[in-house]
């Protein structure tokens, strides 16, 4: 497959050279979320040294507010970073090569930005507010994020796991939604998008049925000023672009975290 131009990359040759190339980070598209990977993960959010992820923010005490679950090659993070320069964002990717790619990509972007940010990028930005971890989000999300710490959670073009016997491996399931609701603050938004109609139905049905989420339509979110996020959700990821090139459909579904009271 030929290497594609990244919209985020500038025309500068040096920068293009510095950015990691995908051909050096190939890996098959699926990972078994239930196997014991050789993962290194924090025992609790409290022990994570966020300052090493976001050195420019080390004295702000900030923690990530956006999480991109299964961030793939990092397109969404790179697109959102300049739009919310004060918001820390973390991508999670289970495939070791791919997460390494994103890590190298962010490192390269940070370096090039500090050198030549003047006038080359449409929005000068140093990408200090994005980072990535190799992680199995199905198992270890609460190891990274404390209760109600996130305002946005992204599930963009997740692995469809087509066979019904594999549905249990889907990133959206009635039981996992409890963990997403735990890390997401009330009012926070879950963004999902896919080009697989069946998966869209699946996500919609389960999220809608879940007591701590309520559907919120695109129009409402745009009115709330979340238009740029939605645009990025549609178009910024590698997968999103591929679907676009092939003229496929994309189905978006968004949900707001709500609270419930106890049954007495």
């Amino acid at each position: 497959m030929a290497k594609r131009k990244r919209t985020q990359a500038t025309s500068s040759q040096i920068e293009n050279f510095l950015l990691p190339q995908k051909k050096h980070y190939r890996q098959r598209a699926h990972a078994n979320p239930f196997s014991d990977h050789s993962l290194d993960y924090p025992s609790s959010p409290g022990v994570i040294h966020w300052a090493s992820h976001y050195p420019a923010f080390h004295d702000t005490g900030k923690i990530p507010e956006f999480a991109d679950i299964g961030c793939g090659f990092g397109g969404l993070l790179i697109a959102l970073a300049p739009l919310f320069p004060d918001v820390l964002m973390l991508g999670m990717e289970i495939r070791v090569q791919v997460s390494q790619y994103v890590e190298d990509r962010i490192a390269a972007l940070r370096v090039t930005a500090s050198e030549s940010s003047a006038g080359i990028d449409a929005i000068p930005h140093d990408y200090q507010n994005v980072s990535v971890v190799r992680a199995n989000a199905m198992k270890f999300l609460p190891n990274y994020f404390s209760k109600h710490s996130l305002s946005s959670l992204f599930f963009l073009f997740p692995d469809p796991h087509f066979k019904s016997r594999k549905h249990k491996a889907r990133i959206i399931s009635p039981t996992l939604l409890a963990e997403y609701a735990f890390v997401l603050r009330p009012g926070g938004i879950v963004y999902t998008i896919t080009d697989v109609k069946d998966l869209h139905e699946w996500m919609k049905v389960h999220l809608t049925a879940f007591p701590l989420f309520e559907p919120v339509d695109e129009e409402t979110l745009r009115k709330e000023g979340k238009g740029p996020i939605i645009d990025a959700v549609y178009t910024s990821t590698e997968e999103g672009k591929k679907v676009q090139r092939n003229g496929g459909d994309k189905w978006l579904a968004c949900f707001r975290r709500v609270q419930v009271s106890r049954n007495s």
Binding site: S43, G46, A181, V260
Partner: peptide
């Protein structure tokens, strides 16, 4: 209502 996670003990 087990979907409502009160806390983890990490």
């Amino acid at each position: 209502q087990g979907y409502n996670i009160e806390m983890y003990c990490p």
